[in-house]
Design a protein around this nucleic acid. Structure first.
Lengths: 220, 220
DNA sequence: ATCGACAGGATTGTCAACAATCATGTTATC
DNA sequence: GATAACATGATTGTTGACAATCCTGTCGAT
């Protein structure tokens, strides 16, 4: 009997929880991540926290300086665009592959998500739209069944979740987003690989344009 | 006075050296990586080796199982193709960006590499071709000046350096490779972004085709 | 008042010992 | 002879203590 807290782990999913906390906005960008404190809060030992920080550094979520500890990485506006462009490229690829592999059932699922999106948009529920957005992209990745690209996209996404919110809130962006997603699903279900890739590239192109606009407007 | 080996470090570039050793073929795929042994050979302590292994796991070079230690990750043929396809996508992107940014001096450098490649090809020096190949891609990434994509490409490359050798040795592949590279450089120097991206995609498409052929022939 | 040396605290880096777990080979039993 | 319980060695996981480094605020000299 060594456990003292209700949730006991001892494993290294310390990294998983830290990742959630960072992407979830529990820490501010540039906030210091002190090993001892994290160990206490996460109910883990310092060695595991240390390893988790090293892993998150590889993922680009954290920066570490020798003898100075770790901080939440602040991604600059320029980097956010770089990341979004990389995402555009890779999302295009998975979408193409999804178009090649999608089954009838897959298409039904995708169409269901689009329908829910339309409802959410009609209700002006931006939080729901954002969630469905994530669901749709995740579903496309699942259909494409490409672990390599999925992993890369997950890395990129975790670095800019915060910036994404800036873009979707611009006037008119939500409506355009729904239409773009609908086009993607249509192309996937028609098994038109090139059209699907192009539709996805156009969609993320829209996101990038919105992001640039938000940056220009200094919207936080 | 604590150093006993000519090269002393104490830092965490333990990861860097391990990475080189793995990608350089010093360890076989699936070979066990025993922490104590590595600590001795690398002249580091076990904690650092442990962290390095965690980082390399994030990079996909190593797999770790709880209580069973780490092994060099064996990438299957299917994964190798997935990785190459992801590379195709991202290399296309950086090449496009390089075409937008290349200066006169950059073009001179690129053309120099192509000239060297032609010489190496004439001399049937496949090792030199392979090295110049790497130099060219690195140069393009430097010109594009996109840290995000460069990092992703570095990850992908490290996972398949070994497989790359299988492809370049196929009859006729070296010659085609040189021509493809020349087309890429021409497009970059003409600042034709779309042509550059397309040329790069075609090039890596060739690599993928060669890889598939090598796999089909069961060439190791 | 400003600047530099310096002390104190906070935090990270290193190390060794111990505990827990897995892999392997041995022996007893049927 | 085959199989299962068991003992043994090898390796990983965990913990705590200590050393090294950085940051901050204070004190003294000019």
């Amino acid at each position: 009997m060594k456990a003292n807290a209700p949730e006991d782990d001892g494993r290294q999913d310390v990294a998983a929880r830290l990742r959630e906390w960072i992407t979830g906005g529990r820490f501010m960008p540039n906030e210091r991540l002190i090993e001892t404190d994290l160990a206490q809060v996460l109910n883990a030992n310092r060695a595991n926290v240390r390893m988790a920080l090293a892993m998150l550094e590889q993922e680009g979520l954290v920066v570490r300086e020798r003898n100075r500890g770790a901080r939440v990485r602040l991604v600059s506006d320029a980097e956010a665009i770089e990341i979004a462009e990389a995402r555009q490229s890779l999302e295009g690829l998975v979408t193409r592959q999804a178009a090649a592999r999608a089954s009838k059932a897959d298409c039904a699922t995708l169409r269901g998500i689009i329908a829910d999106m339309r409802k959410a948009h009609a209700a002006a529920d931006y939080l729901a739209i954002s969630a469905l957005n994530g669901r749709l992209h995740a579903e496309i990745q699942r259909i494409a069944d490409n672990a390599t690209v999925t992993r890369l996209l997950e890395m990129l996404r975790s670095q800019i979740v915060r910036q994404q919110y800036r873009a979707i809130l611009l006037p008119g962006r939500a409506k355009a987003s729904v239409q773009e997603h609908a086009a993607i699903v249509t192309a996937i279900c028609a098994h038109d690989m090139s059209a699907a890739e192009e539709a996805m590239r156009r969609h993320i192109g829209g996101v990038i344009a919105a992001l640039k606009q938000a940056i220009a407007l200094k919207v936080s």
